[in-house]
Amino acid sequence: MNQQQPKRQDNSRVITRLLASVMIMFAFGFALVPLYEKFCEITGFNGRTSSKAATADSGMQVDQSRVITVEFHTRVSRGVPWEFRPEVRSLRLHPGEVKTVNFYVENKTNRDVVAQALPSVAPGEASLFLNKTECFCFENQPLAAGETAVMPMQFYLDPDLPDHVHRLTLSYMMYDLTEQARPRTARVERSE
């Protein structure tokens, strides 16, 4: 088998390349996570609003010809012993108009809880045009036992909002982040 000598070198080159591809694809799998987030941010793919404060452009024109209904909805996730509700169920506004809505929250337990409200907008594409200049959802909300709080959210709709959107829903889900690093399988047992 004397002709195998040059082939063996060939082999190691091919193997190196293939192993490198395996590594690259493994890394690519993880790289898809931030890529997906970026993609969602640009396209409104999953209906999350931006987690950064927008600044209202002072030259922005209020579009008086259109009236949009914005519905607010709040929920608390399992195990969060809070009351959490918006002051109004919905409001109507013109694109470009800046409005403030207050959300009330009350911690009804005797333990301190850190929670985070996460927004979701339907239709998803509208999330790109819902700009918040101020929001409690940008940060964690620590709430001491028995404490109540009023949390404001100030927003406007971009006048570029697509014409076919007349009604959009902004939903907040409140999650308990007090023990976020706790391994979660153990919780099933702990609930006993």
Partner: peptide
């Protein structure tokens, strides 16, 4: 070669989400 590593990545994320406090 192209997709089995991606599967390996996904199952790893499932494992860390379940046991090591990640939130993928």
């Amino acid at each position: 070669i192209a997709v089995m590593p991606v599967l390996a990545g996904v199952v790893t994320m499932v494992l860390t989400d379940k046991y090591f406090g990640t939130f993928f």
